[in-house]
Amino acid sequence: MQRIIQINIAGRIIPIEEDAYIVLKDYLNALESSFAGEDGREEIIQDIENRIAELFTIRLQTGSPAIDRSDVQKVIDTLGPASELHGNASGNTNNANTGNSYQRGNTYSGYSSQQQNYQRNQPPPFNYTHDRLLRNPYDKMIGGVCSGIAHYFGIDPMIIRLLAVISFLTFGVGFVAYIIAWIVIPAARTREELYNTNGGNPVTFHDITRNVGEELTDLKRRGEAMSRELRDFFSKKK
């Protein structure tokens, strides 16, 4: 069973199945991060969204009630994986060794999709599934630093969290270190990115300032939600 939701893409209302939507959303996120630091980023994404809308409209005109996952996959295949679209006009020699970006639609199986990508380009030089250290926004208490670190080392985030809490309490240094890590380590924009070996872009100062802004608003939002929950909790008790 599939729930059908409606999205507005480039001013068109498109009915789309829910899991197809997730695939599409992840693809657009991957595009955003691969064009990060590019001047006309918003415009490029807008143009691509336009094209996606156009392709979807064509698909819907052929009598399909809603866009499903295979349709989205087809569109992604025609447009190309996010990391390969960024090639500079000046013809940079940065060859396809970063082809392991967005490929198949599976949001979780990062490792298997890496295999497929490598088949296309070249075998991995060493079989080294070394993740990039990224904050994990999909599982976070404060800033996702601990769960990012845990993901990096492949251990339970709770262990790192406990260590962090201990270091907060004993020295206070941990707190400062946490804040710095929070600022410096970039967040993963998609789930795929967490599993990527060498994906992502180098972090610039601009990124860092923007990240701090985003994180603060997010923290504020979640703080408010938490205080609301606490209030509810206590008012129930009375």
Partner: peptide
Amino acid sequence: LEGTLYPLLTR
């Protein structure tokens, strides 16, 4: 790959 055209046009 269709997507390669859009960045070029914008540039």
